[in-house]
């Protein structure tokens, strides 16, 4: 494998549909072994970007380099380095799983000798061994999705592009597909698009948030977690305490009563008052029964980033 710093690099991608700008000047890159999450609400331009990366749609402007090969100049060579699973998995429902995968192996120019191994590998890695002789049309949606993933990894591509791989599945299937994606990520770089925040949290090393065709946020998952870090604690006591008493504790900016003996206190991000609260309640014998940092849900963070950008 040539030593390019980035396996996939997109520079200044733009794409219009009529007067609508679907994707506007989007640039990003992915390194070896990385899982990049593409996050955004529906209609934000995720699928359009994925289609451009896989060569299904030509960008109006910009450049896509895969393994250092320009996708627009040498499409065949560049496409050999990517595996793509569109939103609707492209499957021939009248074929059996192994027939279909054998066709995909041939389509991806896998030499005859390695074809059987490649098909067997893909079947095994995607957990399709039990259904390999069944017709694809008869399989459940979760299994069809697995066949779609198998199709994308059969030629051992450097980068696997998955467009909303868990949409339309039931919770158990979602969990299984996520597990599968995590296993795939051990051997390939993965670009994953989704509108589900926890999915990004579970699977990705880096996140990009896209909205209305523009990239709003590119950073590691840790930074996203910092966004999620809240500056509030939830407290519950067995005894009656006034809001003023809590306010008197160091670093607490504001406190409010939520229920009978439950309070929410906010503090400045760098000054965690937990220790102060603990020692104070010991001294005052306040019978503390609950102390919990309040965490923002990913949804809150998402909205926050969107708001900040506007």
């Amino acid at each position: 494998m040539p030593d390019h710093p980035f396996l996939l690099e997109a520079k200044g991608l733009s794409r219009h549909f009529g007067n609508n700008i679907a994707v506007n000047d989007v640039s990003f890159s992915i390194k070896q072994g990385e899982v990049l999450g593409f996050l955004g609400p529906n209609g934000a331009g995720k699928s359009t970007t994925m289609k451009m990366l896989s060569g299904n749609l030509a960008p109006d402007k910009g450049q896509i380099l895969i393994n250092g090969i320009d996708l627009l100049d040498k499409p065949a060579e560049a496409k050999a380095c990517i595996g793509y699973l569109p939103e609707t998995p492209p499957l021939y429902k009248e074929q059996t799983v192994s027939e279909f995968l054998r066709f995909c192996a041939k389509l991806n120019n896998i030499p005859k000798k390695q074809r059987i191994t490649a098909v067997d590998n893909a079947i095994e890695r995607c957990g399709l061994s039990d259904v390999s002789q069944r017709l694809i049309g008869h399989l459940s949606k979760g299994f069809q999705q697995r066949v779609g993933i198998a199709q994308a990894i059969i030629h051992e591509p450097a980068v696997v592009i998955l467009d909303e791989p868990t949409s339309g599945l039931d919770p158990i299937q979602i969990r299984e597909i996520r597990q599968l994606i995590r296993e795939i990520a051990n051997q390939h770089s993965v670009i994953l698009s989704t509108h589900i925040l926890p999915e990004v949290d579970m699977l990705c090393d880096r996140v990009q948030i896209i909205s209305e065709g523009q990239l709003l946020f590119i950073d590691t998952i840790e930074t996203l977690h910092e966004y999620m870090q809240s500056s509030a604690l939830l407290l519950r006591f067995d005894t009656e305490i006034s809001v003023q008493q809590l306010n008197a504790i160091d670093h607490i900016l504001q406190s409010e009563r939520l229920a009978d003996n439950t309070y929410r206190v906010t503090f400045a991000p760098q000054h965690d008052p937990t220790q102060a609260i603990l020692s104070k309640s010991l001294v005052e014998q306040w019978q503390l029964t609950m102390l919990m940092p309040e965490k923002h849900s990913m949804e809150d963070v998402f909205m926050k980033i969107l708001r900040e950008e506007r």
């Binding site: 289609k51 896989s54 060569g55 299904n56 499409p75 065949a76 060579e77 496409k79 050999a80 990517i82 793509y84 569109p86 609707t88 492209p90 499957l91 021939y92 429902k93 995909c104 389509l107 991806n108 120019n109 199709q151």
Partner: peptide, 12 residues
């Protein structure tokens, strides 16, 4: 059936 991307994203 949205099967065309299979052929188009293949190196062919």
């Amino acid at each position: 059936n949205e099967n065309l991307p299979l052929l188009i994203s293949a190196p062919i």
